[in-house]
Simulated assay, not measured.
Amino acid sequence: MPRIVALLRGVGGPTALKMPALREVLASEGLGEVETLQVAGNIVLDDGGRSPGEIAGVIRGAVRTAFGFDLPVIVRTHTELADAHARNPFAGAAEGRWVQTVFLAEPPAPEKKIVVPADYPEEAMLDGREVFVRYPEGIGGSKLQAAWFEKRLGVTGTVRNANTVAKLVALSA
Rank of each mutant, 00 (worst) to 15 (best):
M1H: 10
V5F: 06
V5L: 06
A6G: 13
L7S: 12
G13T: 06
A16C: 12
M19N: 09
P20W: 04
P20E: 07
A21T: 13
E24C: 02
G32M: 11
E35Y: 09
T36C: 12
I43V: 15
I43Y: 05
D46I: 01
D46S: 07
G49K: 00
G49L: 03
R50P: 11
I55R: 02
G57Y: 03
A62G: 08
D70Q: 03
V73H: 06
T79R: 13
T79S: 11
L81V: 01
N88K: 14
V99R: 15
A105E: 14
E106T: 08
K112D: 01
V115Q: 11
V115F: 05
V116Y: 02
V116S: 05
A118C: 04
A118N: 10
D119Q: 13
P121R: 09
A124L: 06
M125I: 15
D127F: 11
D127N: 10
G128S: 06
G128H: 11
G128Q: 06
E130R: 12
F132I: 01
Y135M: 00
P136M: 09
G138E: 08
G140N: 14
G141M: 13
S142M: 05
W148S: 10
W148A: 11
T156L: 02
T158Q: 07
N161W: 07
A162H: 15
T164W: 04
T164P: 00
T164F: 02
V165I: 06
V165D: 00
V165L: 06
L171D: 01
S172P: 01
